[in-house]
Nucleic acid binder design. Structure first.
Lengths: 235, 235
DNA sequence: GTACCGATAATGGCATACCATTATAGAGAA
DNA sequence: TTCTCTATAATGGTATGCCATTATCGGTAC
């Protein structure tokens, strides 16, 4: 937040929201921790107005919860919530895939294939960073190709809400292998423009990807946030 | 808005939002019409703060569009947008149905059946008001029975956004017959707890319900909003 | 020791003022 | 006439103060 605060310069809400989001996603703020509007505003050298806005935004993103007369607290990542969101996400992507099969141009498919091979390259290099980025890009691209603005928007929202878990979750490399194979199946169905099959493959893929949160791994994530009694101010 | 405005009494944002929503949905404000924040606030005897909030809410509901430095304008209902939203809605309800088939208790299903017969009664009486209300209730109930909070919330949002079209559209009675038959098929599948079939029936039903917007009926709605050169100041 | 009650602090919500940015129209120049 | 530039108005965004509502804690009575 190091910058001057002449009134009128816009974007303060964004800055504050980004700042808080960062800290929450990076697990610097623990679930359940209170985020007192006035105090935080003072610390970040902004007034209550943008702070309130920012907290509302984060609330819609599911990162914080606004308790009446108790202020904002960092939302905890409940495995159940995440599973539910992940399920909806898979449903949406399945629908998107079916639409994409119909709407996508040959060039679109070619581009997607290219991205897929880039990802495969990252996989072979064990380049986690790019692997995950490309993986995300591909999924988003498929949704974009659905051509359904509403679907795209809702998907983006959900995806953001799951980002926190994605970040916290340290995907294990041995899972990549399976994911890659599933991805290939998805791409093959797309190339064949088999809408039903692509939808099914994609949903199956997502189902497996998020399955681990049903098997207790997510709890671990929550646990590791339990340490720390926050000496940091701002808190 | 006829009520006293002692500060502190909460709910002003709701009141303003409801007021504007009502007028927009009822078509008292034409699509494209500007909604000047300050002027409107003055007219409704509130300050900019709750007015801004209300306009933001309506923006998320898709009723108004916030143009940078041009203020809020009543969003026009584009058939395409509505179709897209309706498609997502059907996808979500299909998924909800599949979950409901698994999660619903026998009592839940019995209650749903009861509502269904109530609706049938309204249908036979040509009681449009109750027919539509019960129809909505049933759909919402099915979604609720999915037990997926995220799904429920997203569905509610979309449903709100489509409410405006539902309101504007004057369903013709002869369509009810078909809808009733489809509804019966949905209920039968639920009674049999056949998830796949119920999902399919429900989606088919919704597909038909909204199909008309693909066939030009919605254009009429849009046309009537095309006039507007807004001589009316601020309102 | 427990239950009830009241003081205090924190939060929520609204009003208002100020300033920067941008749209828009009107004046002036080509 | 048309283009450009500038003055003005409108909008967006932020800071701030006030007051009502509610949570929380401590004291008192039983």
């Amino acid at each position: 937040m190091e910058d001057e605060q002449q009134p009128g310069r816009s974007g303060l809400v964004e800055k504050v929201a980004n700042y808080l989001r960062e800290h929450i996603v990076m697990d610097h703020f623990q679930p359940g921790q209170r985020l007192p509007e006035r105090t935080l505003a003072e610390e970040l050298q902004v007034s209550r107005t943008p702070m309130r806005e920012a907290l509302k935004i984060l609330a819609t993103e599911g990162l914080v919860v606004l308790l009446p007369h108790r202020g904002a607290v960092v939302a905890d990542v409940s495995p159940r919530d995440m599973q539910e969101k992940a399920h909806v996400l898979s449903v949406l992507e399945q629908a998107a895939a079916e639409l994409a099969c119909v709407n996508a141009s040959d060039d679109d498919i070619a581009e997607l294939q290219a991205m897929h091979y880039e990802m495969k390259a990252a996989f072979l290099r064990r380049d986690r960073q790019n692997y995950f980025r490309l993986n995300q890009d591909i999924h988003n691209r498929i949704v974009a190709l659905s051509g359904n603005a509403s679907l795209i928007e809702i998907h983006a929202n959900l995806s953001r809400q799951l980002y926190r878990v994605r970040y916290l979750s340290n995907e294990r490399t041995d899972k990549w292998q399976v994911a890659m194979i599933e991805h290939e199946a998805v791409m093959a169905a797309l190339a064949a423009r088999d809408a039903e099959r692509m939808g099914r493959e994609l949903r199956n893929h997502l189902g497996k990807t998020w399955m681990k949160y049903a098997n207790g791994e997510a709890e671990v994530i929550v646990e590791q946030g339990k340490r720390e009694d926050s000496d940091q101010p701002g808190v």
